[in-house]
Structure formats: structure tokens, C-alpha cells
Computed example of a mutant assay.
Amino acid sequence: MSSAGEALAAARPRLRDDIVLGPAVRSGPVLVHNVKDPVVGRYYQIGPREYFVMSRLDGSTSLEEIGVEYAAEFRRRLGDEQWRQILSTLAARRLLTGTEAPAGAADGASAVPGPAAEPDKRTLLNARVALLDPQRFFDRILPYLRPLFSAPFVVPALLAVAGLMVMVVVEAGTLAGEAKRLWEAPAAGVTVALILWLSVAVHEVAHGLTATHFGGGSSEIGVLWRFPVLAPYCRVSDVLLFRRRWHRVCTAFAGVFASLLVLLPVVPLYFLAPEDGVLRHAAAALLLFGTFSAVANFIPFLQLDGYFMLNHALGMQNLRVESYTFLKLWIGHVRRRDGAAALERYPRRTKIAYALYGVGSVIFGAVLACWFAIWLLTLAWGLLD
């Protein structure tokens, strides 16, 4: 071994202390790890081999020692040229100690952002406008809200919102009839709509606070336009860095939970208000529309909280896209008898998950499209009649 090679083998590079390495998650046939550089706010995706090396760059373990462990794990040795390429890439992205970028500076390296940090594509039907970074605010108020994350609060609250949902389902017909009376009081209707919109803001803040509670954070709060809905949003890309799946699932669930919690005070208001009064009709509308809009978030075939809860529970990301990719491969294999090698890369459990979700998503989309077409035809027929 040359002197240069000996020096390289003896080197003990150190990954920056603030770099966060996330757990393995399934993305298609492969496992990936999400990596965060908090200085420049970038997220990278790496494979298990890159993770193996990066997780051992602690400043005390030599490259030679890491290389021996790597060969034992992957049955392949890393040569000097490969080590130089790995270190130069990490240095270019300023992930090693001594290569830090100034706070807020962009390094020009090509990052692979996590799903929650993908570049926004603005169209007339879909747009996102960031307003502020809420993390400092969340850090300040979280100590006062810690009791809300304890079992003595969460368990009774879960029972209460479960009771709320049962009550709304049982009384749905009555609530709908009373809510219709709001057409007679436009001001009350506008107030109800404003309260529901603010409950969405509470929903989004709950995601950010829960992510902060579990050691992550939120990078931005803003306004999301998805025709025909204008609503607030909170970006919590750090969720993919949480080691425990349970923490990821809870962060996704927190929004719906908060939306239902804010409706609990409306229940006594509904029963105590005069039966034919505007207050009663407003309370009915809040309970009906607030509960059903919150529960709709659980539908896993819409890219809402239920979808992300399912992703996290399965230890996956990009479930929808990867399911469609898998179905295309499978259909191509059935029709043309090719693609067998690509299908074999998927573990059996992953094949089942992608097949079930992909087929269910297609059926759900078809049913939703048929329902919408029938509704349009019924509306048109009523107008012509």
C-alpha cells in the first residue's frame, strides 16, 4: 500500500454533529434513508450502503476499520478511489466536520429532498405559498403544552372524540336538517365557515407541535390552494427522520385529533341552544361539517393525513406513486411476460401492500368519478327541468 493509501486508511473523518440520519423506509423495491442538513435546510436520500458508511464517521473510527465492517456486511471492499469519491461528495455537500456552510447558505450540491420537501409546482389548480418559519414559536409554547401529550390527557380525549363521532353519525340526519337552516342566516353561515377554516389552522399547527414534541421541527407554515379549497398548511419534513414509526404515525394523526378536539365544546352548545335558534343551527353545521371533514382525512386514497399515517405505519414513503409503478410492472409482466426480474426485487410483503393499495386506489378513484358524474347529471337535469 502506498503512503497515500496508508494515510487514507488511517484517516478518521467525522460527520457533522448536527447532521440527522433517518431510519430505513421502503421506497419501491429498495430501502432509503433520509438525511437532514439543518444548516442549509436540505434533505437527502441515501441507500443502505451510504448510510452504513456515514453512520460510522464518528471521528474515532478509521476508514480501514469501517472498510472491514463494510466488507463483512456487504461482501465487497471499498477501494481507495471509492473512499476518495465518498469523502469528496460528503465534503462538497459540507456534511463533514470542518466543511460547514454558513447558516442559510446554499451549497449548490444536488440534494434529493424527502417527499415532504419536494419543490412546489404552482398551477391554477394547485399552489402553495410559504408565509413564515414557525419553529421558534413552537419551541416557545411547547413547554406549556407538554401535558397535552401525556396519557392522562390523550386517553380521555380519544374517548371523547370517539363519542363525538358516534353522536354525529347517529344524529347526522337531524344535524343536516338543522344545518340547512343557516341559509336563512347568511352572517351565521359565514361565521361557521370562518370557524371551520380556523380549525384547519389548528389542525396544521398540531402537526408542527407534535413533530417538535418528538424532537423534530417544522420548516414553514403557509397557505395551500387546491381547487376549490384555500387552506393553511404546516410542513413537517422531519417526520421521516423519527426513529420510531409510532412517532411518525402520531404526528400524522395529530391534525385530525386536534380538529375533533376543538369541536367538543360545540356539543353542549348544541344541546343547550334553543331548538329553532340560529345558535343551534350554527352548532349543528359545525358538528356535522367539522366532524365529516376531519374524518375524511382518514381516507388513505386521498393524500391527506390517513395516507401519511398508512405510509408511516408500513414503514414506507411515496406509497401511492410506488403502488402505481408496481401495478404497471405487474400488468406489463402479465401481458408481455417481461419484467420478471424487476418484480423479483420487491419483497413479498411489499408486493402485497402495493397491490392492495394500488387496486384499492383505482377502485376508489373510479367510484368517486362515477359519483361526481352522477351528481353533475342530476344537477343538470334539475336545472333543465
Rank of each mutant, 00 (worst) to 15 (best):
168 V>Q: 04
169 V>F: 09
170 V>M: 04
171 E>R: 11
171 E>C: 08
171 E>M: 14
175 L>G: 02
175 L>M: 02
176 A>N: 07
183 W>N: 15
184 E>P: 00
188 A>N: 13
189 G>M: 12
201 A>G: 11
203 H>T: 12
208 G>E: 10
210 T>G: 03
210 T>W: 03
212 T>W: 06
214 F>H: 08
215 G>Y: 02
217 G>A: 04
217 G>Y: 02
218 S>C: 15
220 E>D: 14
221 I>E: 10
222 G>E: 14
222 G>W: 07
222 G>R: 08
223 V>M: 03
223 V>C: 01
224 L>C: 02
231 A>N: 01
232 P>K: 04
233 Y>G: 10
235 R>L: 13
236 V>D: 00
238 D>A: 05
238 D>R: 05
240 L>S: 09
240 L>A: 00
240 L>M: 06
241 L>F: 00
244 R>M: 02
246 W>R: 13
248 R>S: 00
248 R>N: 08
252 A>E: 01
257 F>W: 12
257 F>H: 14
259 S>Y: 00
260 L>W: 14
260 L>E: 14
261 L>E: 01
261 L>M: 11
263 L>T: 09
269 L>R: 10
272 L>D: 10
275 E>L: 10
275 E>Q: 14
278 V>C: 08
280 R>K: 01
282 A>S: 07
287 L>T: 11
290 G>S: 06
292 F>S: 08
293 S>E: 02
293 S>D: 05
296 A>V: 10
299 I>C: 15
300 P>G: 09
302 L>Q: 05
302 L>H: 02
303 Q>R: 15
304 L>I: 04
